[in-house]
Design a protein around this nucleic acid. Structure first.
Lengths: 219, 219
DNA sequence: GCGACGATTATACGAGCGTGTAACAGATCG
DNA sequence: CGATCTGTTACACGCTCGTATAATCGTCGC
């Protein structure tokens, strides 16, 4: 008697691709890049290893897709946050910062995933382009938000400020994600808003009523 | 005729261990963790693969030693910088920050190495201890330097400030290392000093005469 | 319903991995 | 100068990796 062949359902290309990408991201986030083998990815996605090569030319292409999806997802969260609030410059900047410092962006898995791909980003021109696009888009959004603040500006000032604020947010993102137990709820956001405010000379903590971390604690 | 057996010299344990550790760090920095195979490490260190197991119980132990050496080296650079300057609080803080934002601490290889080990740090209690010790030592040094500044303090203020400054320096370290072409020489240090100064309410850029990046440009 | 298409599985292959073990040879000491 | 010790090499083993290819069987148009 033959061993039973595995039963399966046909799924759309979209479904399979996103399932494989999600499985890859989960495995890298949990166990680092070396845990994301084709066999582990397939098992996590509920398929057999061969199917990966049916939807992706190689495992490397799946890896690239997973990184792309990570970066796209994170930048999308920032853009969403800006759209959800009013027109006041301080409010929009505060919402943008807060979105980067709360889940799902603030997440240990996301940081490990980001870190795990760092060397591939440096060696693969395709991934480098994805990275630069995300990075510059983020910094550009930040710089534009900074420029709308009601201040008197010196020439060339906002570039340095955007770099500094970007670095600060990145650093808090890493530390807040990796050592969440070290911080009180919302503390990372508070520190981020206070520090960015200090760098820019504006009081962002006075414009937090619309943030879920602050709005509900008012009497 | 037998193939010639490879010639070799006996070396001290110290020499061999550090050579293997350096080879591991170089390979991870260049090609990520998966490039640091026992065969590649041995070749880079000028020995044969078997010798690794003579000095380290396993490849994992060598990996841990390499990470430990990285973290020790970076924290040592910060301590050195403080000792090399005078007693003025602003000067000492500025020297500490600058040391973290110039080579050899500011280095793409160091960042890729640090990132490559991130998931192992999270899963290996031994490495986690190394990481926490380094991280807290750095933040503690920073906080003590902040507390010596001539300011009137609110209770609990310096903790948040140290977290923010630490995050800012970390973020600049990553970005300045990965995209060095994006910044003018010394620009990362200037931005770091200006931003930390803004967060703390002191002018650190007025105390940079003893830094190599600034001292020599004076008339 | 049934035939054809192709999404999916099954299986095999070569390469490279970390590791264990035995033989060799450079240094040291009497 | 020869015996001993051990740092070092050499080699083999089992495993897992990514990939290639052929067989299968769900699905959909007719």
């Amino acid at each position: 008697m033959q061993p039973a062949r595995r039963l399966y359902r046909r799924e759309s290309e979209e479904t399979r691709r996103s399932a494989l990408i999600a499985a890859t991201q989960d495995l890298v986030a949990e166990g680092g890049p070396e845990a994301a083998t084709v066999r582990a990815i397939a098992e996590r996605a509920g398929v057999t290893p061969g199917l990966i090569r049916h939807y992706f030319q190689s495992k490397d292409e799946l890896s690239r897709a997973a990184y792309r999806a990570l970066m796209d997802g994170m930048t999308a969260k920032g853009a969403d946050a800006i759209e959800a609030v009013g027109a006041k410059p301080e409010e929009r900047l505060a919402a943008f910062i807060a979105a980067s410092l709360r889940p799902p962006v603030l997440d240990a898995g996301a940081v490990v995933l980001w870190a795990g791909y760092m060397h591939k980003v440096r060696s693969d021109p395709d991934l480098m382009a994805v990275h630069e696009a995300s990075y510059l888009a983020y910094r550009d959004t930040l710089q534009k938000l900074i420029e709308t603040l009601p201040r008197t500006l010196l020439p060339g000032q906002t570039r340095a400020e955007a770099i500094a604020c970007n670095a600060l947010i990145d650093g808090l993102w890493v530390e807040g994600s990796l050592l969440p137990a070290t911080f009180a709820p919302g503390e990372v956001i508070t520190i981020g808003l206070a520090s960015v405010g200090a760098i820019l000379g504006v009081d962002l903590l006075a414009h937090t009523a619309m943030l879920p971390e602050f709005g509900k604690t008012l009497p």
